[in-house]
Each structure stands twice: as C-alpha cells, then as structure tokens.
Design a protein around this nucleic acid. Structure first.
Lengths: 173, 173
DNA sequence: AACATATGTATGCATTATGCATATATTGGA
DNA sequence: TCCAATATATGCATAATGCATACATATGTT
C-alpha cells in the first residue's frame, strides 16, 4: 500500500516533468513531437541513417522521413550520402547545432527549477536512485537509445551512464 | 557539474517512464492524447464542466469539446445539464468507469516494473524525495490539478498528497 | 552474370489530436 | 432592457503521425 502510493508519486513527478520539458523544448526546437529528440540525438551521433533514427525515436519509417523533411526544410538537418547507395547520413547544420544547444539548455533549466528544492544530500540520494531505476528500465538496446534521446552527453559522461553500462551487460556476456 | 548529471538522469527517467506510461495507458483508453487523463480525472471529480476539465488537461476549449465528443461517441462519458443553463456536467458511464480502472491498473503495473529494482529502504527514500519535488512543482492551482490528472486517489490519500498540501499553502495564507 | 530477396528511402492517402477564429446560448448586472 | 461576461459549439486549418505501397540499391545463390 505504501509502495503503491510511492508509485503514484513517481508517476506524477514524471508526468509533471515531461509536461514542462516538452513545452520548453518544443518551443526551442520550433517543432513538436520527436523533433527535439531528433536534433539532440543527431548532435550526439552525427551521420545516423533515417532507419537508425527511426528506432531511437520509436517512430514509423514514413513518420521519420517526414520528420527529417521538416527539419531539412528548416535548414536544421542535412541529408548526405551514406555508407551505401541506399543509406543516408543525417547531419545537423550550423543552425541545427544552435537549435540543439538551445533545446538542451532549456531542458537543463526546466529540470533545475524542480531540483532546487532538494538539499545537496537529497541530490546525492536521488542520483543513486535514478541510476538504479535507469538500469532497470534499460531492457534492450533500442530502449537504451530511446532513454537517452534527449540527454546532454556533455554533463553525463558515457562511462558513468547507467543506461550504457546496463546495455553493455545485456549485449556482451 | 555533478548536479548537472543528476538533472540529466532525472530527465531521462521521466522521459522513459512517460514513454511506457503513455503507451500502456493509451492502449487501455482506446484514445491517445489527453483522453486517458480525462477519464481518470472525471472519475475522481464527477460533474466537472468542460471548462474546468480544459484547465486541468491544459487544452484549448475547442480541443476539449472535441475530446469530450470522442469520449461520448464511445459511450465513456455523458454530458448532463450543469449548475447553469450554459454549463455542462460531465460524468463517466459504466463503461467509462471500467475503462478508467483499466487505465489506472496499467499505470500501476508500468510503474511497478521500474520500482521492482529498488530495495524497501530505497523506496522510502524515493517517496521522500518525490514529495519534495512534487511540492516544488506545485506552483499554481492549475498546475496542482494537472500534476494529479492521472493519479489514483485510492492509493494516495489526499491528506498526504504533497501537491494538495502545497496547494493549500499557496491559496490560504 | 542473373535473379530473387533483403534493405533503405520516399510518396500517396488517411487519421488523430489539436488550435484559431467565430458563432450561439445563457446569465447577471447597470 | 441591454450589454458584458461566461459556457459551449462549430468551421476550418495544421502538425504529427501511420498504413500501404513504390522505388532504388545491395547481397547472396545458383
């Protein structure tokens, strides 16, 4: 029963955070849906194909093509030739990189407003709990990339990323 | 810097949780967008007007009218006469209440999968941190209702709800 | 080398969820 | 009684997405 209440609080926090995150981040991207995630992901992993991006964003293929169309029309993303005659490689333009910075900074700000309420000790506790949760939530390679699709790799080094660590454990042995 | 990493982890957890929550809860509701939240909210607060619902769901008025149209067409919600000649009172039908139960139970399940990873002590810590976060995130009456729009009031008594407590502190003095 | 199959991308068409501008109905007060 | 405020509804448009399908390139088999 007490656990059920904690579950409920967790759901409310997640919902509330994503509400404001989505709003702020969408405003910066100039597009909604998965567009902000596309810009952030392409910044961290330049040269992704449409198909690879599609799996990270959990969209249909046509949905991803259209998303890239919109971003390209806005001069945020470039389609270049990929490793293959079929495959494309997607890159951010200069404007796209700027947009990405704005998105990440809006995200930091929004999250920071909520975290201000926590004492330094609380924050340390929170980090530990979040690591455990993230590790448990990483159930497949696809989920791993999806979880990190809005992450700021500049502040979260990959050798300490619980998602990557869990992912390595899943694939290697 | 360490704080920035914690922020980032928090954002990833929120995103990951809402991903699966939205999927499961949408499947149960048979509608996407704010439809699940509408059913949950109307179950907890029967007789809300369209305008009141609109503020909780953070939709435009026309958007809310159309949402109620869809739910009524599916025989999940009834429009009845309200306190006024203008005002409507919205109620769940029998089918709507069933749908609501399914939504809440899917939500519990999804959240529970993530929480399984935490020890009992961790869960207690987590509850405390979530209470602090929720209190900080309750910046207005509107946000208070929005935060709780998918909550299961059966497991989260209102006299211990950090959102309601914070909201009372905001309005009364 | 030829052809079947797989892979990657694109397009036509439809749908869901939503917003803006505006219309309609009811209420309450000057 | 008339006007402003409130509550709901409708016409029209848009954003973001999916399904079915088409097209282009690559790979493997014989």
């Amino acid at each position: 029963m007490e656990d059920e209440r904690t579950l409920n609080l967790l759901g409310a926090v997640a919902l509330g955070l994503v509400d404001v995150l989505a709003m702020d981040v969408t405003a910066q991207a100039g597009h909604g849906g998965e567009a902000p995630a596309a810009l952030v992901t392409l910044g961290a992993e330049p040269g992704l194909s449409i198909n690879a991006l599609r799996q990270i964003l959990n969209l249909s293929h046509p949905g991803t093509v259209r998303l890239v169309d919109r971003l390209e029309a806005d001069d945020l993303v470039q389609r270049r030739a990929g490793s293959d005659g079929r495959t494309l490689a997607l890159f951010l333009t200069e404007a796209g990189r700027d947009r990405r910075s704005a998105i990440l900074s809006a995200r930091r700000q929004s999250l920071n407003r909520a975290m201000q309420a926590l004492s330094p000790g609380d924050r340390q506790h929170l980090a530990h709990l979040l690591e455990t949760l993230l590790s448990a939530m990483t159930t497949s390679e696809q989920r791993a990339f999806a979880l990190c699709r809005l992450c700021d790799e500049a502040v979260c080094p990959s050798d300490r990323c619980p998602v990557e660590q869990r992912h390595d454990n899943l694939t290697q042995p």
